[in-house]
């Protein structure tokens, strides 16, 4: 690991001012905020991230979960994943989020990992994580060996010819289905970004993963007021029973009245280059009877644009089954 300077921020504005001096908030940034460290320290040990300065944001009092005036929920940036998943309000009103977090990582990691950190979780692509390998995300222009190499775990949706890295987060998939908003304090003030717009597709610039600019500090995430009576489910499919990233996952928030779907918010994990909200699946369902054949049609719609590679073609059908089963199970709940 490269030597670095470590400072503790006492106020958010100060942290933002320091970080704003940096040229980028993306891959290779020299100044990084650190909270739980479960992604960043790991990548520093691998020399994938080599920041010269870490600003600890754990003392910024961003660790509260509070109701908002509008009836939603404000989740602080440094709320630990374990605390978020076990929060009574989250379990009652946003259970898909609790389910998603608890199916990720391990208890020890969830105790350390934070909300903002999870939003910025990096891909598990083995080529990205090994500096001896070419990788367009880590070193723009160096190439993507994954496209013809070991790509079983990699994405089939939102890919480009430069990058097919999967976004590995479970939490973000649930937040996409819950239409979370990400609140950012930056050098020019604060702004709020819907989660659907927060992560970027790789395109020709896979090293740019989010809309964050130098100095931008995620302060909290806001969930809209809960859909009372909605049926929520997170289903995660993987090789082994625990402690593994998703091959395919689905977060669904369904409202059903008189046997018909009145609203559907659907997001997929393990298959996209970003947490994958699927308006195609949603529009295939809304207004339709809540039955197995419509669920399957929605799943087919979700995967229509999938682009499989040499080893990950199975994900297309696996994701279809995952979403179909998630919808069926949620509808029955």
């Amino acid at each position: 690991m490269k030597s670095f300077e470590f400072t503790r921020a006492d106020d958010a504005a100060g942290a933002v001012t320091i970080a704003a001096k940096e040229k980028t908030a993306q891959q290779g940034a020299n100044i990084r905020f650190i909270a739980g460290g479960t992604t960043l320290v790991d990548l520093m040990k691998l020399s994938v991230e080599t920041p010269g300065q870490l600003i600890d944001i754990n003392r910024l009092a961003l660790d509260k979960i509070e109701p908002t005036r509008g009836g939603g929920l404000k989740i602080g940036a440094t709320v630990r994943n374990a605390d978020l998943a076990n929060d009574a309000t989250v379990k009652r009103d946003y259970s898909v989020l609790s389910q998603a977090i608890l199916q990720g990582a391990s208890a020890q990691l969830r105790n350390m990992a934070t909300t903002a950190g999870n939003l910025l979780q990096r891909t598990r692509c083995v080529y990205f994580r090994d500096p001896a390998m070419p990788c367009n995300k880590r070193e723009p222009g160096s190439g993507c060996p994954a496209i013809t190499g070991h790509n079983r775990m990699l994405a089939v949706l939102g890919t480009s010819e430069q990058c097919i890295a999967t976004n590995p987060s479970d939490m973000c998939v649930a937040m996409a289905a819950l239409e979370a908003t990400i609140h950012i304090q930056g050098p020019n003030g604060s702004r709020a970004i819907p989660i659907a717009d927060f992560h970027l597709l790789p395109g020709a610039t896979p090293h740019r993963e989010t809309v964050l600019e130098p100095g931008d500090l995620i302060t909290h995430v806001e969930l809209p007021s809960p859909k009372v009576g909605s049926k929520q489910l997170y289903l995660k499919l993987r090789d082994r029973a625990s402690y593994e990233f998703a091959l395919a996952s689905a977060a669904v928030v369904l409202e059903i009245a008189n046997g018909s779907v009145t609203s559907a918010r659907i997001a997929l994990g393990g298959v996209g280059t970003k947490p994958w909200r699927s308006p195609e699946a949603e529009s295939a369902l809304v207004g339709q009877p809540a039955n197995a054949s419509n669920f399957r049609k929605a799943a087919e719609a979700a995967m229509r644009d999938a682009k499989p590679r040499s080893e990950n073609g199975f994900k297309v059908e696996l994701a279809r089954r995952c979403l179909t089963h998630a919808l069926e199970t949620a509808a029955k709940s």
């Binding site: 598990r124 083995v126 001896a132 070991h150 090789d239 082994r240 029973a241 625990s242 402690y243």
Partner: peptide, 16 residues
């Protein structure tokens, strides 16, 4: 290269 050279990428049985 042995490309899945970590305990995250080389899948072994876990307790569950």
């Amino acid at each position: 290269a042995p490309i899945n050279a970590s305990l995250a990428d080389y899948i072994v049985t876990v307790n569950a």
